[in-house]
Structure formats: structure tokens, C-alpha cells
């Protein structure tokens, strides 16, 4: 929760330098840009809590954007295009789950493989080219509707993208903290042997986390497709790492077993507020990246310090 306190301080500090930070439009933009990172952060957090990692997130985002856009430029009905894209993304999730959960491949390697596979598919679906505007296939009206649903439209005065993120957050927050599956996810992350001996199916649970991750990537792919109005082969590049950053800033332990999604929300918020603020005061992209890097390390350092009590008394290590 230190992250939330940090968030407010950062926000006010930037606001003092440049009061437009507080403007309604900026807040709207901030919420929208944060949404993408929150969604992929949720997916990655699920995987991180089991003590694994998903490197395929960014590529699945790209794959999702490209498949959906290609189908729509071919004139496929947007709803059908979304469903087909969904199935394709879930296949990658299942694959990750089988490789890591069943065949016990190191998650770093397994998802490194699927990362290349998914990016390869993203390139291949439209013959190694970005797509044309989706409106060229499904028509101007349907194209605009798609873009509004995922990016430009507002409901109750707030961008739809943010609402999508909030719904996903609530659903997966509930799933993780209140249900049996959620408990199994924590148990595997804390002690996989004990979990197995307690009747937890490691394969099924691991696969579920990768499915959640693939689902989140799928949604973000659609958002990026809506934003651009076309498919970009490089969409979602590096998102798997942004997702780790969002989770880790918010206190999700990459070692597994600990962390809550509220932390991921805080992590994504802190990061985007920072990026937004730096932007508003005219900082260059280079500076922005550098600051984010420092924040990630600092957040984890803070976590380690609090947990091991470097500044306080030592806590029992057992």
C-alpha cells in the first residue's frame, strides 16, 4: 500500500509543476493508458503468484491485434472476428500451461518459445505486412463501432477502455481472493509439493493461470487494434516486461506465493502516473524509461527491506 501513497505524492508533485496534470482530459487519458498495463499486469500477476512467468504476453497481444484486424479487413463480422481471435489466443495459453504444468519445462524457456511462436503468427497472418484499416473490410460504420467499443468511446463520461479494465480487475480480483482456484494458485506458488499432497491439481491450476494471462493479452490486443484502427505486427512489443513491472511495483513477488491484485492496480497506476507526469513536464522518452527502471528496482528493494527488516529488527526467518 506504500505504492498508493507514492502514487498520490507523484501525482501532486507533477500537478504543481504543470497544472494541466489535474485537467479532466488528462485524467481521462491517464486512466485509459493505464488500463492496458493494468490488464496485462493482472494476467502476469496470476502467473507470477504461482512462481512462474509468462514471456509470451506481448506476442499474444500482437497476435490478437493482427488476427482480429486481418479478419475484419477480409470483411468478417467483428463479433465473429473477436471470437476466432479469442480461440487462437487461448490455444497459446493452453500450450503454455501444458509445457510448464505438465511437461515441467522451466517457465522462462517454455514461454520464451511461445513468445517467438506467437509473434511469428502475428507476422504471418497478413503475409508479413501490417493490415489496412479495418473499415476497408467491414465498412466504415462497423469499423468505427469496433474502435469506439475498445478505445475511443465513453460510457458515463469515462473511456470504455477503462471500464473494460475495471470489469476484468473485479472479476479476476474476486477469482483470486475468494475462490478455490485462487487458493490453489497461491498454494502452488508457496509450496508445490504440499499443494499436490493436499489434492491440488498442479497441471490444471497452472494452465488456468496461463489462460488468464492469454485472455488478458487477447483483450489488450483488441484495444490496440481499436486504437490504431488496423493491425500492427509489432503491437504489444515488450508488454510481457511491462506486465512484470506493473505487478512487481505493486508488491507481487516474482518468487510466488504472495501478492494481491490490488497491488497490480497500484503498480500500473504509479507507473502510468509517472509516465504521464513526465510527459506533461516535457521529459524525453529516454528519461521516462530510466525513471521507470529505477522505480521498479526501488519498489522491490523497498519490499525486501520491509520484509527482511533491514531498517527494523530482524523478523524470524523460519
Amino acid at each position: 500500500m506504500t505504492a498508493f501513497a507514492g502514487l498520490i505524492i507523484i501525482y501532486i508533485a507533477f500537478g504543481i509543476i504543470n497544472p494541466t496534470v489535474f485537467s479532466g482530459q488528462n485524467i481521462m487519458n491517464l486512466l485509459r493508458s493505464m488500463s492496458k498495463y493494468l490488464i496485462i499486469g493482472i494476467g502476469q500477476s496470476y502467473v507470477l503468484i504461482t512462481g512462474n512467468i509468462d514471456l509470451s504476453i506481448g506476442s499474444v497481444v500482437g497476435m490478437s491485434a493482427m488476427i482480429a484486424a486481418t479478419l475484419m479487413t477480409m470483411g468478417v463480422n467483428p463479433v465473429a472476428a473477436i471470437l476466432i481471435t479469442f480461440v487462437c489466443c487461448m490455444v497459446i495459453g493452453v500450450l503454455n500451461g501444458i509445457l510448464v504444468g505438465k511437461w515441467k519445462l522451466p517457465p522462462f524457456i517454455a514461454t520464451l518459445g511461445t513468445m517467438f511462436v506467437a509473434r511469428g503468427i502475428a507476422y504471418m497472418v497478413n503475409g508479413n505486412r501490417n493490415t489496412d484499416a479495418i473499415a476497408s473490410g467491414v465498412g466504415k460504420e462497423a469499423g468505427e463501432t469496433f474502435q469506439n467499443v475498445f478505445y475511443y468511446g465513453k460510457t458515463l463520461g469515462i473511456y470504455n477502455t477503462f471500464w473494460i479494465a475495471i470489469i476484468i480487475f473485479i472479476v479476476f480480483f474476486f477469482l483470486l481472493s475468494k475462490t478455490r482456484t485462487g487458493r490453489h494458485i497461491y498454494a502452488i506458488g508457496s509450496n508445490v509439493d504440499a499443494a499436490k499432497l493436499s489434492g491440488v491439481s498442479v497441471v490444471a491450476t497452472t494452465t488456468k493461470t496461463y489462460l488468464v494471462s492469454a485472455f488478458c493479452s487477447f483483450i489488450v490486443g483488441l484495444i490496440l487494434c481499436g486504437q490504431a484502427g488496423m493491425g500492427n505486427m509489432e503491437a504489444g512489443n515488450m508488454y510481457e516486461m511491462y506486465a512484470v513491472a506493473a505487478g512487481v511495483i505493486g508488491g507481487i513477488s516474482p518468487l510466488g506465493g504472495t501478492g494481491i491484485l490490488l497491488g497490480t492496480l497500484a503498480g500500473a497506476s504509479v507507473w502510468q502516473t509517472l509516465e504521464n507526469g513526465l510527459n506533461m513536464i516535457g521529459a524525453q522518452v529516454g528519461i521516462q524509461r530510466l525513471v521507470i527502471g529505477i522505480i521498479v528496482v526501488f519498489a522491490v528493494l523497498l519490499d525486501v527491506v520491509v520484509r527482511n527488516g533491514v531498517f527494523k529488527k530482524k523478523a524470524p526467518s523460519k
Binding site: K178, T179, R180, T181, G182, R183, H184, Y186, A187, G189, S190, N191, A194, A195, L197, S198, G199, V200, G257, T258
Partner: peptide, 27 residues
């Protein structure tokens, strides 16, 4: 035997979630 990073409550509940959950899997 134990998930040491988890609370006593989580540990005791872990093998008994079938009893503690409703049909939707909510604890």
C-alpha cells in the same frame, strides 16, 4: 506439508476447499 508463506487459515483450508466452497467455487 505446509505452504509456509501462506497463513494458517489458508493452510488448513487448502485440502478442504471442496467442503468450504459453494457450487461456483467461492470460499
Amino acid at each position: 506439508g505446509l505452504c509456509t508463506k501462506l497463513s494458517i487459515r489458508h493452510n488448513i483450508a487448502l485440502p478442504n476447499l471442496d467442503i468450504l466452497c459453494n457450487k461456483l467455487g467461492v470460499v
